[in-house]
Design a protein around this nucleic acid. Structure first.
Lengths: 233, 233
DNA sequence: GCGGTTTGTTGATCGCGGTCAAAAATATTG
DNA sequence: CAATATTTTTGACCGCGATCAACAAACCGC
C-alpha cells in the first residue's frame, strides 16, 4: 500500500488499533484502488475474495429478493470496513454511489493477519457490534418512518456527513450543500420512489423549510422545522 | 453456573469455542436464571450490566422511536447471545416472548474474560457478523415483503424452529405445531397489525394451504404453496 | 445553437394495509 | 356454571405512497 501515514482515515479506520510496525505489516498486504460511481465491488451471494476500508466516497450495501426486488440495507462512509471476513459468503452487494477510494485486502491474507493480531480482531468486533446497532436503527427507519420523515432525516444526515468530510476540526452541519446523489439513489436508500422523494422535497420547499435552487443543491432554511419533520431522531 | 456438561446449548452457544478447563472458568462467573413471558431483561438505552446466552425460549429485540412507535428488530433463539459487551449502551430492549432460561454474566466479568480468551472473542466476532447478516435480511423483510409473504414466511420459520428444538438429530420441519406466540406478538414481529395477520391466516385457510383447528394450532396442508406465498426465500 | 438523452417534476388513479368499531370465540374468575 | 375479561375475527372505511403517464428541465455531443 502506498502511504498509511498520510491516509485520510488513518485514525478512524480499524488500522487505528495497530502500532506503527504492525501497521507497516498490514500495509504490505493491501493496496488502494480507485473505483468509479456505479461500480459494484462485492456481489451478493459471492464468496467475495476481498475486504476493504473505505478511504473516500460513499457506497451502498444492498440485498435482493429472489424475485428481483432490491433493498438498500446500509450506506458506508470513509473509515468504514466492508466485506465479510472469516469464510462466510457476503450477504449483500456493495456498490459505489460516488467515485470512491478503497484500501483493499485479499480476504485470505486479511484473515490470516487478523488471527495473529487479537487487537485488530477486537477492534473489528466492536465495530461490527456498532454496525449491528446501526443496521437495527435502519430497521426502525424502514419499518416505521413516513415518507416525509425519511426525506427530512436524509437531508439532515447529508448536511452532517458532508460537513464532516470537508473539515474534521469543525463538524458544524452545513446549511447549504450539493447532494452527491441523484433522485434515483436517494429514493433507493430511503425505500421510496423517486416521485415520492420529489413530492416531499416540494412540500418542504412550499413550506419554506428548505430551498432547492438547483436540482442537486439544498439549502436548509429552517433547521428546527426540518428536525421536527424528521421525527427528532 | 450449574452444569455446563448437561447444558442444552453447550455445543451451539459461544461456549463451544472453549476447552473444558476454560469452560469451567467461564462457568464460575455466570449463572442461569429463569424468566417468564413478557419480562424485559435489557432496556434500550440502558448501560445494561449483563450479557447472556439464551438456553431456552424465544426473545424479541426491539427499538423505539422518540415518539413511542416500536419496531421488533430481531428474534433470538436458544444458543444465541444477547447483550452488548465492551462498554457501549444497548441499542435495543430484550423481552421474552415465552418463558425462557438464560445463562447470564455481568458485563464487566464477561468483558474481562473475553479479553483473556481470544478464541472466545473470535467466536463472538463471527457470530456478530452472522447476526449482522441476519439483521440485514430482516431489513429486506420489513422493507419489501407484503403482508401475505410475511405471514407465510413466519409460519415456515416457526415450523422449522419448533422441530429443531424438539429433536436435534432430525431437523425435519413440522407440518403441525402450536404457535408459542399470540397474534399480538406475531403482528409485532412481522411489523403488521393483528387484524392483518388474522386476515392473512384466513386467506391461507380459505385457499386450503393451511388449517387452523385451534387459535394457536397451525397445520400446513400444502407446503409448496406456502413456500410460494412466502416469496421463496 | 440544435436534436437527443437522461433526470426530475407534476398529475391522476389505485391498492394495500392501517384504523376504528363491533361481534365472536376463548380464558379466567368467583 | 354464569359473569367478566381477554383475545381473535370480521366488516367498513380511509390515507399513504406506488404506479402509470405526460411533461419540463438540465446535460451532452456536435
Amino acid at each position: 500500500m502506498d502511504n498509511c501515514e498520510t491516509c485520510l482515515v488513518r485514525n478512524r479506520a480499524i488500522c487505528s488499533a495497530l502500532e506503527p510496525d504492525e501497521l507497516r505489516d498490514l500495509s504490505r498486504i493491501g493496496r488502494t484502488i480507485g473505483i468509479e460511481k456505479g461500480e459494484t465491488v462485492i456481489w451478493e451471494g459471492d464468496d467475495a475474495p476481498i475486504v476493504a476500508n473505505v478511504v473516500e466516497g460513499m457506497l451502498q450495501l444492498s440485498t435482493s429478493t429472489s424475485d428481483g426486488r432490491e433493498q438498500i440495507v446500509g450506506v458506508v462512509y470513509p473509515s468504514d470496513f466492508i466485506g465479510r471476513p472469516f469464510g462466510a459468503t457476503s450477504g449483500n452487494s456493495v456498490t459505489s454511489l460516488t467515485d470512491a477510494r478503497l484500501c483493499v485486502f485479499t480476504r485470505a491474507a486479511f484473515d490470516r493477519f487478523a488471527q495473529d493480531h487479537p487487537k485488530l480482531e477486537h477492534e473489528l468486533l466492536t465495530r461490527t457490534l456498532s454496525e449491528l446497532d446501526r443496521a437495527r436503527q435502519w430497521l426502525l427507519f424502514v419499518g416505521q418512518r413516513s415518507a416525509s420523515e425519511r426525506v427530512a432525516s436524509f437531508l439532515l444526515e447529508m448536511s452532517r456527513k458532508l460537513s464532516r468530510e470537508t473539515c474534521i476540526a469543525a463538524p458544524v452541519p452545513l446549511d447549504r450543500f450539493d447532494l452527491p446523489l441523484g433522485r434515483r439513489q436517494i429514493a433507493d436508500i430511503l425505500g421510496l420512489t423517486i416521485e415520492t422523494v420529489s413530492r416531499q422535497l416540494r412540500r418542504l420547499r412550499d413550506r419554506k423549510i428548505i430551498d432547492v435552487p438547483g436540482r442537486r443543491t439544498i439549502e436548509i432554511q429552517d433547521r428546527n422545522a426540518l428536525e421536527h419533520e424528521s421525527g427528532r431522531d
